[in-house]
Nucleic acid binder design. Structure first.
Lengths: 148, 148
DNA sequence: TCTATACTCGACTAATCAAGTAAACATTTT
DNA sequence: AAAATGTTTACTTGATTAGTCGAGTATAGA
């Protein structure tokens, strides 16, 4: 159930840019602060640019900036665009459902749907701004099983 | 955030054995019903045996049985044993925490911790018996906007 | 225009995972 | 003994992920 390194590094970079709004950060500085090699980060920043999350400026004093204010950048969306659906199984995905021949009587699908919903609930309701403001609430918990 | 095919197939097999308690199912039948090739399933069943979830019997009328009643088999535990921690990032794992040098001021960790807790909450509270009885409750969750 | 700095592109290596193949071997039942 | 079944080990192929490397292009500023 891992998030890929690309997803993690991309979010790190977006957060750093969010902490320096109005400034242009060169990739060398982003690399240093996020602990990612310049060369690997180049690929990730390029991807973020193609996805429209950042703008870049070339030449001296060049670098990257956030294209939208942090409150408009949704974490679930970033992760989906970088590494595909949040769902643990294709059959439970809302955004890119995959049919499965077992599905009719599948005892597992309701579980994966529930897990997907829990993950999506967190990530789709979180923006970059929430992270910057440390607004993530610890888990409340609760019972999950039907009583009978 | 995927569950591996091994995890899915292992759970399918355990569920099938749970539906046929008291019977010995040959691998050929398990393979057919779970839609997994016999050869790949052999590897998975071997792993499940080493982990203590199933017993095997050789020779004719041989096959696999569940070693414990379904209510004693915890889904979170099965997945952890087959594919490692539930947490999306090592830094947020309870069962196998990994240190990260950025951790001190990390804005991302609280998010990963929350996601981990949500996943663990579902999977650690679910047993094979819950799945067999279709006791999984759909998500109550707030208004989650569906992105694409 | 020169040039330092930054971004772009493509090739390449290495590791891991999924899925399947193959073959030799051990038991158990008939 | 023969047939059926599981056990074990090792190899293969393809996809994806995680990086690395080197050379090239664009641009701001002196």
């Amino acid at each position: 159930m891992k998030v890929s390194s690309r997803g993690e590094y991309a979010l790190r970079s977006l957060l750093l840019l969010g902490q320096h709004q109005g400034q242009i950060l060169p990739i060398s500085e982003i690399a240093e602060k996020t602990m990612v090699t310049v060369k690997y980060l180049e690929q990730i920043m390029h991807q973020l640019k193609k996805l429209g999350y950042v703008d870049s400026k070339r030449g001296m004093q060049g670098g990257y900036t956030l294209r939208f204010p942090p409150e408009e950048i949704n974490v679930g969306e970033v992760i989906r665009k970088l590494e595909g659906p949040l769902s643990p199984m294709g059959c439970a995905s809302v955004t890119s459902y995959e049919r499965c021949s077992l599905e009719a009587g599948c005892l597992l699908k309701p579980l994966w749907v529930l897990v997907r919903d829990k993950i999506a609930e967190v990530l789709d309701q979180t923006t970059l701004e929430d992270l910057l403001q440390r607004k993530i609430k610890p888990d409340a918990g609760g019972s999950l099983l039907v009583k009978n």
